[in-house]
Nucleic acid binder design. Sequence first.
RNA 1: GGGGGCAUAGCUCAGUUGGUUAGAGCGCACGCUUCACAUGCGUGAGGUCACAGGUUCAAGUCCUGUUGUCCCCACCA
Length: 876
Amino acid sequence: MKDMQTTYDPREFEDRIYANWMKKGCFKAKIDPAKVPFTVMMPPPNITGRLHMGHAMDETMQDIVIRFKRMQGYSVLWQPGTDHASLATEHKIVEKMREEGITKEELGREEFLKRAWEWKEQYGGAIVEQLKKLGSSCDWSRLAFTMDERCSRAVREAFFRLYEKGLIYRGSRIINWCPDCKTALSDEEVIYSEDAGYFWYFKYPVEGSEEFITIATTRPETMLGDTAVAVHPADKRYSHLVGKTLILPLVGRKIPVVADDYVDPEFGTGAVKITPAHDPNDFNVGLRHNLPMIRIMADDGTINEQGGEFAGLDRYAARERIVQEMDKRKLLVKIEPHKHNVGHCHRCNATIEPIVSKQWFVKMAPLAKPAIDAVAKNKTKFTPDRFAKIYYNWLENIRDWCISRQLWWGHRIPVWYCDDCGAMTCAKEDITACPKCGSVHLHQDEDCLDTWFSSALWPFSTLGWPEETPEFKYFYPTDVLVTGYDIIPFWVMRMMFSGIRYTGKVPFRDVLIHGLVRDELGRKMSKSLGNGIDPLDIIERYGADSLRLSLITGVAPGNDTRFTEGKVESSRNFINKIWNASRFVLMNAKGVDVPKDLTGIKFAPADRWIISRLMATIREVTVALEKYDLGIAADKLTSFAWDDFCDWYIELSKSALYGDDLEKKRATLGVLMFVLTSLLKLLHPFAPFVTEEIYGYLPNREGMIIDADYPRYNSKLAYKSEAKAFEGVIELIKAVRAMKVSVNCPPSKKVHLYLMTDARRLFSVNKGAILRLAGASEIEFVENGAELGEKIVSQVTGAAQIFVPLGDLVNIEEERARLTKELARIEGEIARAEGKLANQNFVAKAPKKLVDDEYAKRDKYLEMKKKVEEQLKSIS
RNA sequence: GGGGGCAUAGCUCAGUUGGUUAGAGCGCACGCUUCACAUGCGUGAGGUCACAGGUUCAAGUCCUGUUGUCCCCACCA
């Protein structure tokens, strides 16, 4: 076999590895009754979308969980798909057509949809290809689309069921209207921002009197639809006017003055113009006082025929004209600058108009309740659990969901109206005749459903529901949903109540919530700021593995994170380290008959130590992954790989590898190979490409790492006490290194070590390693180091007292100062321990192990203190 | 008005059911042509865990309050 390239170059193998996984069908979900299923539904990206850092993080987290579970032996399904994104897509297509000078009305519904499907075929796959670059191991053969036949059937079924139970109704209510997209929006699709505006103060004359009532408005044009002025019932300033009639200026309509608690007497003038058709609060006031609702605006934001002379004007032009006219009539009192919250369309940013309109709604109260209960009863668990509160907060304050959209791209509302008898019929299959009167003169509702209506069904629509398909039975309910906290109201919530309603089961057991990926300065990445970083560009330069690692290391669940190229570099450096460590092992294994496993290997202390560390790491990483603590898992892996394995064990192994004892060399290589293989497997969910690539070079591998068993903790290999003893060797080596630095002794200068110790055997056995790593020429055991003279540096460790004669490098004064400082530190430790032990409550109430540890610690430091004191005495 | 987050080293952040001497990366200082890796190795400096109380044998961690900061929702005629 070829040797590994000397440099880590992800571009050389990532695409090849991915293609091979695909070719071998590694991602395919299989219904296997012998296995436990594990299912994740990918949040379907919009077909208009381009991969951004948010996706990259979301996908990475899912892929880590999926690969981990796959290796643990579950039968995994990671269901991918895309969302038709009704409004977003239609908006894009309309924009494109605008460039060609065509409107969708000119084109007609059918032709428009033809274009939309073409558009979907052309661009809808782009994001899918981008997801592959990340290494996502989802079952692409099951790629779903919210408007494919399966999902569309589910939508029909769901609508039909709710309709039958009266949970979907059609009614005239105030809704959010986007005059630009010309459609209704749900409350969640409106984005509010503090905008600078004005307060216009208008005088409305009281009929048959010289008196006026002054109102303030931020939207003068809506006065055309005023049907009352309201004041607070207890407001003495206006009480004499309640019940009187006003003449609405410019319009001439007679409108009443009504008293209503809704009015805040402290705000503005304490008198409010009431426009029931164009404001949600006014709408309610209108209902209470039985006021007429006069809609004065057309769908495109122009004033309609109700606006008299202003009809046809755009809303803002009308505003200007009305202010002028009022001014002319001396009815304009003043204009004040005023900041207020204005709703904007989440798609096109146009200012939303609250408008009374006939739309379809889902009655939320009966759906919300079971969704709240399911989380309260822990049937679905949020990670981190604080997001459950946010979820409750949404569902407890929820209003009915406006689901109709005046769009063409989407699921058309399955309701038909009979032109003859007027009957309204909802049907799962298209109908051609009225079931009531048999008339064939029918027309289907023109509107489409909110895109989220179909997304809400995603966990089961993709599995074939309402049919009891084998995959539905096997893979549903799903195990974990991974998504950002910003999506809870749009999607998580709606999947929850939909899943419970339609399937009787919660759609997922766990919801893993992550935060936003921000830029280096902590700002949201956005198109308008131009601060977005393209994940594909990062992959191109650093590789997907580095990107993946950088998106999860040091990130706590649910928290936002800043993306910096420095983090990617760190991850790349780490992977490079793994690459080179692997290369080291493989180079040394060349031509050697490396043991296939640990059976029969005679372990050296260092071997037991690294195996012990490996076992601890396996346990920690597994526990962390099972709790979705991906950042912690990655951190444990990194420090094991870099510190324990590379910086210590590989260095320790060199004396055996470069020595003459062939059996020892074989044994060491066996351990190296075992640990490396385990490490690669542990790392595979995080860095799938490089681990698969390296795995391919391992001599004793079987199959591919993606299908390998995840390493398991083996208590027989824990070697706890042996590992602890070996820490003494490490401590010794570190101490010697530090001693050399303290006297500016060049690291390359070999020193003669004198040790006073009870653990002679430990240090003898590991002599080779100590000499190599501490930079020593010899180890000599002595009974009394003080006899070695003054030109000496000494250091006490837990297991030994070290003496290094360094001749003229030693400055007695400095050495005395160093030892004095060391003594102070030790005395501090003793004081701390004794303080604790003097506390009777601690001794009585703390766990015995802690108390014992404290005694041991005190004794250890007392011992060290004695030695340091002796040494100080000997050089003074 | 309601809800939530955050405040830990110069910077960005971890800190897993309260329990050794609070960690990492980057940065910084000193040293290293050590035969896997300078995308590296060694050694180190650097923290009143925002503040004030409380619970506890024990608090970065739990509770209350304060300050600062960010986010979400509602309201804003």
